[in-house]
Design a binder for these strands. Structure first.
Length: 465
RNA sequence: GUGAUUGUAGCUCAGUUGGUUAGAGCGCCUGAUUGUGGUUCAGGAGGUCGCGGGUUCGAGCCCCGUCUUUCACCCCA
């Protein structure tokens, strides 16, 4: 049979793994620095844990796992006879692959609440699965790197997460734009125009602001049967936000006369943004005391995010780098006030962000931002050693003891040319040709320059280092 | 989920309006040559043309189905 792997999944070669690990290590280091602690959860969860948390679209993208044994006997025979796939699923599948790391985390918090010290800061780097159709930057199995703080209402957590995002992308060398919004503003607008029941239609309409501007939003709202007064009111909001001037944004709050939700959303947004040097809405803090970010931080009122559980802050990060054409978001997150409530632990607000490692990989690859030394693993190869294997092994031991990665060519019977090809293919920078060496001096070749020289064994370690 | 797109040797690709034993470059293997792998020369292995069905005297080229690739929409990391 011809070997293959499922659609949307990938194998990773050693070269790719070294680069992937570079991303994971960078993100993990920043997570640790900010005080987050690691956990892991299983690949699969009970379907009931996952279903209903991601909205209608999200639920459809959850991979279900078939029950074991004679599952058709256990199934609802009537639904089975009617070939009602959608409804019969729940009777033949009780488990599912996890769709993100946030919901399993909420489940974890509830199950381990007695052992956790709150506020709890955890990070988690694991694969998740989505039954999406693959395309650019979209895979069916991909890694998320999450950091969440749960059990704290403080908006300083939002501030810290923005600092964390800025630091990660600064370390990776990618220029990005951090978009920030608050879901309360969105529901505030819905309330203000008297259409809280059309929240989703409003969000979808606002979404086109990004591409088509205020006029596009009006058009979209017309399509979705909003009244002229409603459209005009929203248009007012949009224009105030699209105009990036602080005084324009300040006047924004005056628009929420009838919505406490909207007013609060504005205050939350304001109090977070005010910590950063790029914004100065009310001029309270002097510029010197504000945090300077390497990347851009912007308010984007159209930012809604599909995940249903967000209730406050919403983050999204997009690449803004000439060297990359990547347009989809590479990091996102937000605040969820009651994710644990459904599992029986109310009043536990959390906020977190999720880095899309695979998309970040694509960006770094496209923009050529991987450090070059990320490719070399072994520093030294010993070749042509068949005549004196004990000497070869003793040199190997000495180099290893100096904490340098080195190896023997794995087959002493192969031709010299083969052994040199191996060094080149593996990008090993140095080769010791043992047939021309003795217990005092070794013949060392630098593969990149092609130069050979004889140096003493004691110098070897320092030379390679 | 909707609409396109791709699939020929290990890799990158040719293959004309359907017509005899399906090609190239690189790579790989063998031998020779070369004062020290990387040069040059000679030879060689390797493909049921994604899979299944159909049309035809005859299909890599046409039709249907299916899987896969890539992309847009939707949604999202």
């Amino acid at each position: 049979m011809k070997p293959s792997i499922p659609k949307g999944t990938r194998d990773f070669s050693p070269i790719e793994m070294v680069k992937r690990n570079y991303i994971f290590d960078t993100i993990r280091d920043v997570f640790k620095k900010f005080g987050f602690l690691p956990i892991e959860t299983p690949s699969m969860e009970n379907s009931a844990t996952l279903m209903g948390k991601y909205g209608e679209e999200g639920d459809k993208l959850i991979f279900k796992i078939l029950n074991s044994g004679d599952f058709l006997k256990e199934a609802d025979q009537e639904l089975l006879a009617n070939k009602d796939s959608k409804r019969v699923t729940s009777s033949i599948s009780e488990k599912a692959l996890k769709y993100d790391l946030t919901v399993p985390f909420a489940r974890y918090v509830v199950m381990h609440q007695n052992e956790i010290t709150f506020p709890f800061k955890r990070y988690q780097i694991q694969p998740v699965w989505r039954a999406d159709r693959p395309q650019k930057g979209r895979y069916r199995e991909f890694y998320q790197c999450d950091a969440d703080v749960i059990g704290s209402n403080s908006l300083l957590n939002e501030v810290e997460l923005i600092m964390l995002i800025d630091e990660v992308f600064t370390k990776l060398g990618v220029k990005v734009k951090i978009l920030f919004n608050n879901r309360k503003i969105l529901s505030g607008i819905a309330e203000e125009i008297g259409a809280p029941d059309k929240f989703h239609d409003l969000v979808y309409s606002l979404d086109v602001n990004d591409k088509l501007g205020a006029f596009g939003v009006s058009q979209e709202m017309t399509k979705r049967d909003f009244s002229i007064e409603q459209i005009e009111k929203v248009d007012d909001y949009i224009r105030k936000v699209n105009n990036k001037a602080p005084e324009s944004f300040r006047s924004f709050s005056e628009l929420f006369k009838n919505s406490a939700n909207g007013q609060r959303g504005f205050e939350e947004l304001n109090s977070v943004m005010n910590n950063f040097g790029q914004y100065d809405f009310n001029g309270v803090l002097s510029q010197e005391n504000k945090i300077k970010l390497f990347n851009k931080l912007e308010i984007d009122i159209s930012l809604a995010r599909g995940l249903e559980y967000y209730t406050g802050a919403i983050f999204e990060v997009k690449v803004e780098d000439d060297r990359s054409s990547f347009t989809s978001s590479i990091c996102g997150g937000g605040r969820y006030d009651d994710l644990t409530g459904i599992f029986g632990l109310p009043n536990m607000s959390g906020v977190g962000i999720s880095f899309g490692a695979d998309r970040i990989y694509d960006v770094l690859e496209e923009a050529n931002l991987f450090p070059k030394d990320a490719e070399a693993t072994t520093k030294l190869l010993i070749v042509d050693y068949a005549n004196d294997i004990p000497l070869a092994l003793s040199i190997l031991k000495q180099v290893h003891d100096a904490n340098i990665s080195a190896e023997l060519y794995p087959d002493e019977t192969k031709k010299f040319a083969k052994q040199m090809d191996y060094a080149e293919a593996r990008r090993i920078p140095f080769v010791v040709i043992l047939s021309k060496s003795n217990s005092n001096e070794v013949e060392l070749k630098d593969i990149r320059s092609g130069k050979r020289e004889t140096i003493s064994l004691s110098e070897l370690v320092d030379f390679i280092k």
